[in-house]
Amino acid sequence: MEHRYKPLDRQTIVVTGASSGIGLATARRAARSGAQVVLASRSEEALRKICDEINNSGPGRAVYAVADVGDEVQVQNIAEVAVKEFGGFDTWINDAGVVVFAELRKLPTKDHERLFQTNYFGIVFGSLTAVEHMRNRLGGGTIINIASTNADMPVPILGGYSATKAAVKAFSDVLRMELLEQDIPVAVSVVKPSGIATPISEHGLSHMEDRGKVMPPLYDPEVVARTILAAAQRPVRNITVGGTGRFTSIARSLVPGLADRAIGWLLPRVQSTGLPKMPDSNLHSAGEDGQVYLSGQRQGLRASPYTRARLHPNLAVGATIGLAALFLMSQRRR
């Protein structure tokens, strides 16, 4: 059976972590393009409001499933809702994630385990559930797993989070190999955002003296949403969203010893806000959701030329050839 991509207006798309941040931005954008969306998170109140908003504005339709992605049975229920409401799904986006700001020596085991239960096992349960439902579907389907640039460049204070994202990338790469070997028509994409201006730090638990934050510069969540939905419509293997994340990953691979010292000194200082800790977090239970942006206000870099070039390599090659031709013409005139 052959894998076939479809335009968004012919797709049913499952999005976990859909009640805030990247997941919410992606769900709204997909629905505006005409997709049918199944939204999943732990926050029923937020999900209900978001679905009402989407269904009232159209053209896409939305339903929701309340689920903790760290529970395999609840993840399977998301798929059952999609089958019941829309007859199945074409793309499954694993976006749900949590964060803890802490040195590894000060990260409680229960919190460390919960990071993996949500960030890693949530993607494992989602991916394997999606494969079972899509393997015999006409045209197959697509799984899009949201990792992080921290999968390639782990950093202090977010050590536990970095470890989960490295595990997500490894799992996704091996799953892709197995699906290819078994001729199962399910594609796997890994999207690795740089720092994004979502409320994740406001939802995060801090074991530091103050509230933590994601290292700037930050990108607009819409940049990630566009990338995710591009991967839902054409082949995208592994892609970093944001040139800053890619640059720092390359720099660390070139001079790892120097980078370790610099990052080890800089990151704990850059990720400190000096603000009081948030009274609650969404690590062990649902928090306050419904916002795409950090502090509820649109912010962050609204474009990534690097990511756009990766998604449109022919345009990048054309631009390079054009610049080279202009350079050669200028040299000849001299």
Rank of each mutant, 00 (worst) to 15 (best):
I78A: 07
G88P: 10
E113K: 14
F116H: 09
V98N: 02
G97L: 00
A96K: 00
I93L: 12
G88K: 01
E85Q: 14
N56T: 09
G97P: 02
V99Y: 06
G88Y: 03
V75R: 03
D68R: 06
K84V: 05
A102R: 01
G88D: 02
A65P: 08
Q76R: 12
F89N: 03
E113W: 13
G60W: 04
V81T: 11
F86N: 05
K110V: 13
R105A: 12
G97H: 02
A65I: 09
D90Q: 08
F101V: 05
K110A: 14
T91A: 10
H112Y: 14
W92E: 01
V98A: 12
H112L: 15
I93Q: 05
F89K: 07
P59Y: 00
D111T: 11
V100N: 02
F101R: 00
R114L: 12
V73R: 10
T109L: 10
A96P: 01
V100D: 06
Q74F: 02
R61K: 13
E72G: 00
A62P: 15
D111K: 09
V73F: 03
G88V: 13
T118E: 03
T91W: 05
V73K: 07
P108W: 09
R105N: 09
Q76L: 15
G97A: 11
W92S: 06
F86W: 05
D90E: 10
F101A: 10
I54S: 08
I93S: 03
E72Y: 06
K84P: 00
D68H: 11
V75I: 07
S57F: 05
N56M: 08
R105D: 14
I54R: 06
Y64I: 08
A67H: 12
A79V: 11
F86T: 08
G70V: 08
A62S: 10
V66Y: 04
V63Q: 14
W92F: 15
G58Y: 00
D68M: 08
V63S: 12
D111P: 02
K84G: 06
N55T: 10
V66G: 09
Q76I: 12
E72S: 05
A102H: 00
V98K: 01
Y64V: 03
G87K: 03
P108I: 15
I54Y: 06
A96D: 04
D68Q: 07
K84Y: 02
N55H: 10
V83S: 04
H112T: 09
P108H: 11
L107C: 12
A67D: 12
F86L: 04
L107Y: 11
K84F: 03
A82F: 11
F86P: 07
N55A: 05
W92Q: 04
N56A: 13
P59M: 01
F86S: 05
A62M: 04
V63A: 10
D71F: 10
G58W: 00
F101N: 01
N56W: 11
A62T: 08
D71N: 15
G87F: 06
A102C: 06
L104W: 11
V100Y: 01
T91M: 07
F86A: 04
D95C: 13
A62I: 10
E113L: 15
A65D: 09
Q117D: 13
